[in-house]
Design a protein around this nucleic acid. Structure first.
Lengths: 148, 148
DNA sequence: TTGAGGTTGATGCAATTGCAACAATCATGT
DNA sequence: ACATGATTGTTGCAATTGCATCAACCTCAA
C-alpha cells in the first residue's frame, strides 16, 4: 500500500502481465503446432548463431537468455544430447565452458524463425502501428533502465 | 519471415518479453524475500476475495487466473492443504466445485498485498508517469482485443 | 428415454524447474 | 607461495508443470 501507487497503475500492471502471458502462450502453441521445440531453445540457438564464433561462455549465454544457471546447465544437456550444441572447454579458464552451436543447431534456428516470426507478426505486430511500437519501446526502455 | 514483420517490431517484441520476465522475477523475489508464497497464490486469493460470495467455480477461477486446468487443480490441492481455500460441491452441477476462500486465505491476501503493491510501485509504477501508463494501457488494449 | 457429444475437474506419469549444496578453479592480498 | 574468498558450472533431490487420459456428469436432439 505505498502512497505512490495508483489503482490505475495496478490495473495497467495486471494487464501488462496478462497480455504478455497470453501472447507467449499463443506463440509457444504455434511452435508446438509446427512440431518445434519451445522458445528458450530458439533463444539459445539464436544467441549462439549471432555470437562471433558461434559460441558463448555458459555464463554469457545465461546472461542473454532468461534462465537460471542450473536451469541452463540442463537445457544445454538436452540440446547437446540432440546434437544442436556442444560444450567446448575454455583454454584460459579450466572451470568454464563454451557452448558452441553445431550445424544442426544452425538449421534449427533457420527452421524455427519462419514460424516464430509469423507468430510474432500475427499475435503482436499486426495489431500495432509504427507509432504504437515506438511508444511501447520508449516505455519499455524506461523499465529496462532499472532492470537491465 | 512474413512480409509484414519489420525488424523494429521484432526488437520491440523481444524487449517486451524480456521486460515482463525481469519484472516478474523481481516481484517474485520480493515476495519470497518476505516469506510469502508465489504470485499465483495471490491471484487466486484475490479473485476469490473479490468474488460475490468469496467463491468461484473452478473453471471460472481458471479463466481469471493464468493457469492450465490440471495445474489449477493441484494448486488448489496445495492451498486447501494449507487451509487457505476449500472445495465446496455445487448443488446444481454434481461435476463441479466451488473454490471458497477461507478466513486464512483472506488473511493471506491482506498480508501479501502490501508487499506486492510495494513491489509493483518500486519496479514498475515508479518509473512511469501518468502519460506512460495511459499509453501502455491503450497499447495493451489493442493486444487484448485479439487475446482476450 | 436414451445415447452421442460436450463439459468439468482430477490424476498417473514423465519432463522440467527450483533449491541447496558442491567441486573445481581462479584472483587477490599478504 | 599460499590462504581466503569469489566465480563457474554441475548435481541430488524435491516440487511443480505438462501431457494424456480419465470418470463422472450434463445437454440436447432424435
Amino acid at each position: 500500500m505505498p502512497r505512490k501507487l495508483s489503482g490505475a497503475a495496478v490495473d495497467v500492471w495486471a494487464r501488462f502481465i496478462r497480455a504478455e502471458h497470453r501472447l507467449l502462450e499463443a506463440v509457444e502453441a504455434d511452435l508446438k503446432a509446427a512440431g518445434l521445440p519451445p522458445l528458450v531453445w530458439y533463444d539459445v540457438v539464436l544467441e549462439l548463431v549471432r555470437a562471433p564464433d558461434g559460441r558463448l561462455r555458459h555464463r554469457d549465454l545465461q546472461a542473454r537468455v532468461l534462465l537460471a544457471k542450473y536451469n541452463l546447465s540442463r537445457l544445454i544437456d538436452r540440446m547437446a544430447g540432440d546434437g544442436l550444441v556442444a560444450r567446448v572447454p575454455v583454454a584460459e579458464d579450466a572451470r568454464g565452458a563454451y557452448i558452441a552451436i553445431a550445424e544442426t543447431g544452425r538449421r534449427l534456428q533457420k527452421r524455427m524463425w519462419p514460424v516464430y516470426g509469423r507468430s510474432i507478426a500475427r499475435h503482436f505486430a499486426a495489431h500495432l502501428d509504427e507509432g504504437d511500437l515506438a511508444e511501447l519501446d520508449r516505455i519499455l526502455a524506461k523499465l529496462r533502465a532499472v532492470h537491465p
